[in-house]
Amino acid sequence: MYLLYLDDSGSAGNLADRHVILAGVALFERQPHWFSAKLDAIAQRIWPDSPATLEFRGGDMLSGRKHWRGVPKSDRTDALKEALGILGNSSLVHLFGAAVHRAAVSPDDPMERAFEQLCNRFDKFLGRLHRRANTQRGLIILDKSTCETSLQGLARDFRTIGHRWGQLYNLADVPLFVDSRATRMVQYADMVAYATRRYFEYGDGTFFDIIAPRFDSEGGVVHGLTHLKPTTELCNCFCCKQKRF
């Protein structure tokens, strides 16, 4: 089974944000333990008195909030880059992300459109594995603060009724919602979403560039990242440039 851990970045209710971001990391079921241990090692170095309580969340790390308040900015920035580098340097992970411009989908809910995109792209990824004689089911795991009620119902409808591109065939069950403090993998997802938000919302690729090569792709075509934007808006982002060639 492949597990897709997702989190959002920014606030779906904050109209000052042009984009709603949902993103995260997929990996085989036996891998989370080892990737979690790598974050534990960073936490042990930064917060040795109580490393298990140090939560890796991109916004907190860069802004110096919560446990990160007393950590020097250079150390916080280096820790975020190091954590993202664990993903960026591993061929075992497949990243997925959706950046949805509010104006492009209005009056639809941008978070639901982002989730629809990622469900479909994760399902297609599993379908590609099946065609290579590696049949796997998938399970989506989200931070419990991420629109739990609406997304659970949406995923259930996707499995039974379908979505705008067809029906999902490879998901084992409706999404699970967990406390991000209990799993390092959702914390990885938060950092991926944060890096993706900074890239699409502010044009800052400092952190996004570390993980960009790991977004799911095949034959040089990136499938794991999408940017829904107004048709009248020209965009030279990582995935929009691909669509023009």
Rank of each mutant, 00 (worst) to 15 (best):
K144V: 05
E201A: 11
A189N: 06
H223C: 11
R198T: 01
T160A: 11
A193M: 07
M191W: 02
H227R: 09
R128K: 15
Y194C: 11
L151K: 01
L228G: 04
N134P: 01
V174E: 09
M185Y: 07
D216E: 14
D204R: 08
T226H: 04
G205Y: 03
Q187K: 08
R131M: 13
V222H: 04
S145H: 13
Q136M: 15
Q136N: 15
K144G: 03
S145A: 15
E148H: 12
Y169V: 08
Q167A: 12
Q187W: 06
M185W: 06
I141Y: 00
E233Q: 13
P175W: 05
N170Y: 10
F207P: 01
Y169R: 12
I141S: 00
G205D: 12
E218D: 13
T231C: 08
D190Y: 07
T206Q: 13
D204V: 06
R198A: 01
P230G: 06
T135R: 14
F200Q: 03
F207Y: 15
F215N: 01
A182Y: 06
D216H: 10
V186A: 05
P230F: 03
T206S: 15
V192T: 03
L171P: 00
D209H: 07
L151W: 04
A155C: 13
V186P: 00
R184Q: 06
L139G: 05
F208T: 00
S217R: 07
A193V: 08
H223V: 02
A155T: 05
R132T: 12
P230A: 09
V221R: 13
Y169E: 11
T146R: 03
S180K: 03
D173F: 08
N134W: 12
R184D: 04
T183K: 05
G220V: 09
G219S: 10
T231I: 15
V192P: 00
T149R: 15
Y199I: 04
D216Q: 05
G127S: 15
T232I: 10
H223S: 11
H163T: 09
Q152K: 15
T232H: 14
E148P: 12
V221K: 13
T146V: 15
H130F: 13
I211H: 02
L151P: 00
F200K: 02
Y194R: 05
E218W: 14
F215H: 04
G138R: 00
R197W: 08
L228S: 12
